[in-house]
């Protein structure tokens, strides 16, 4: 393979997704879709079910109920077809840490059956752009958090995937690399690619995403463009943070917690 594999249908259609771990319901009746050329942001507090949803889309977890389609392929029935078409940047760096980036990319290019010239050209461009050359022969385990993230991002982009599934992709990246990644994402969109962007950094989501789905306790609590979301919670002009807290009904609770913390700190200072 030397280029993008085409698929039919929308990048992602998730219908009534449910995922249970024993008695715990991590994802509860979640439905959304990602259109071609669109960045869809999946926002939610820690433990909301974002990563579980990402894993179901990437074919790493089977849904307990409901279904997902990635370009018309069911990740449970056709995991290989799905994995060929997506580039996944997981939240935690799932890499072979005892390998060096050079050895790791050799492996990635080989198992994705990329043509050597295509792989070389893309890899060189990404390594240059992310300034990874210096670390190319160091064991991944010895790299900093941000550099590991760069390795993870390049591995996801190497095969020119049709859909990018990014779970906190900017985590640990310096300002320069974050800018480079944003530019790469824009280029990806120009080529009709889709992006699912999972994050809890609201500013990034606000600047990157065309539509946003806010999930809490596994459920979709609000969905739409930033403008629509603001309208939805009747806080026109408010920041996305306010929209988000209102949507997950944490605005009053957070205010109370912050006030209690402030009082406690004041008391310790007096003593």
């Amino acid at each position: 393979m030397s280029g993008r594999l085409k698929g039919n249908g929308e990048p992602i259609i998730a219908k009534n997704l449910v995922r249970k771990f024993g008695d715990k319901v991590a994802v509860d009746d979640l439905s959304f879709h990602v259109k071609p050329g669109e960045v869809y942001g999946l926002l939610g507090p820690n433990g909301a079910g974002k990563t579980t949803t990402v894993k179901m889309i990437a074919g790493l977890l089977s849904p307990t109920e409901g279904s997902v389609e990635v370009f018309g392929f069911d990740p449970v029935i056709n995991p290989i077809e799905v994995k060929q078409r997506i580039g996944l940047v997981p939240e935690d760096h799932i890499l072979y840490k005892s390998l060096t980036p050079r050895e790791f990319f050799d492996f990635v290019a080989s198992v994705r059956r990329l043509k050597p010239a295509f792989a070389k050209q893309r890899l060189s461009s990404f390594v240059d752009a992310f300034e990874l050359e210096e670390y190319f022969d160091k064991p991944i385990a010895a790299l900093s958090h941000g550099t590991k993230q760069k390795v993870s991002v390049i591995a996801a982009l190497l095969h020119e995937p049709q859909l990018l599934v990014l779970d906190e992709p900017l985590s640990g990246l310096d300002a320069r690399s974050a800018r480079v990644l944003k530019d790469i994402l824009n280029f990806h969109l120009e080529n009709e690619g889709g992006i699912l962007f999972s994050s809890h950094i609201l500013e990034v989501a606000e600047s990157l995403c065309d539509r946003i789905g806010i999930i809490d306790e596994g459920r979709m609590v609000a969905e739409g463009t930033v403008k629509e979301l603001r309208k939805m919670v009747k806080s026109v002009g408010g920041s996305l943070e306010e929209v988000f807290l209102r949507a997950v009904q944490q605005d009053t609770e957070v205010a109370a917690t912050v006030e209690a913390l402030r009082r406690s700190l004041k008391e310790t200072r007096r003593r």
Binding site: R102, D106, F136
Partner: peptide
Amino acid sequence: IRPVTVKVS
């Protein structure tokens, strides 16, 4: 620093 290469097998 060695040049960036990729070995596809």
